[in-house]
């Protein structure tokens, strides 16, 4: 079985509305692509992505596996936090990586929390 990983630079979704972003990502995933997106969606967009995924579930499409690696650490000293905030202001949602894959191919994405392990499964014929 071959796997297709598609890299999506942040510039490709930067000027899209939330709905356009979710449509684009979900369309690609429904075509059995595993997406590696530069940056991350906003929390509200992640929730909307889950809702749209649920609305799309049918016999063939059983949902998605989703994982975000974000470089920000939570237990850091004042200066490190200030540095993180400055980087966030400059880069915004461009920081980090988002992995989205179809659930019929991607069994599990493990976060540990700074590395990602992607486990695949044999695609079932439906």
């Amino acid at each position: 079985m071959s796997l297709t990983l598609q890299f999506i630079p942040y510039s490709r979704i930067e000027d899209l509305t939330s709905y356009q972003r979710i449509d684009l990502l979900l369309d690609l995933v429904k075509n059995d692509q595993i997406l590696v997106l530069e940056g991350r969606l906003r929390s509200e967009e992640e929730a909307e992505l889950i809702q749209q995924t649920m609305a799309s579930i049918d016999k063939k499409f059983t949902g998605i596996e989703l994982s975000v690696v974000y470089p920000e650490k939570k237990n850091v000293d004042f200066f490190r936090r200030l540095h993180q905030q400055l980087v966030n202001i400059i880069l915004g949602d461009r920081r980090g990586l988002t992995i989205i894959g179809p659930a019929n191919i991607v069994k599990e994405i493990k976060q540990d929390p700074e590395k990602i392990q992607l486990f695949t499964k044999e695609k079932r014929k439906r």
Binding site: R42, S43, E44, E46, A47, I50, L66, S67, V68, I109, K110, Q111, D112, P113
Partner: peptide, 17 residues
């Protein structure tokens, strides 16, 4: 279970927002 699942992070992120 492992708490670092994206569902957990998305729920908490939305509550924060």
């Amino acid at each position: 279970k492992d708490p670092y699942s994206q569902v957990n992070i998305t729920i908490v992120g939305n509550l924060e927002a």
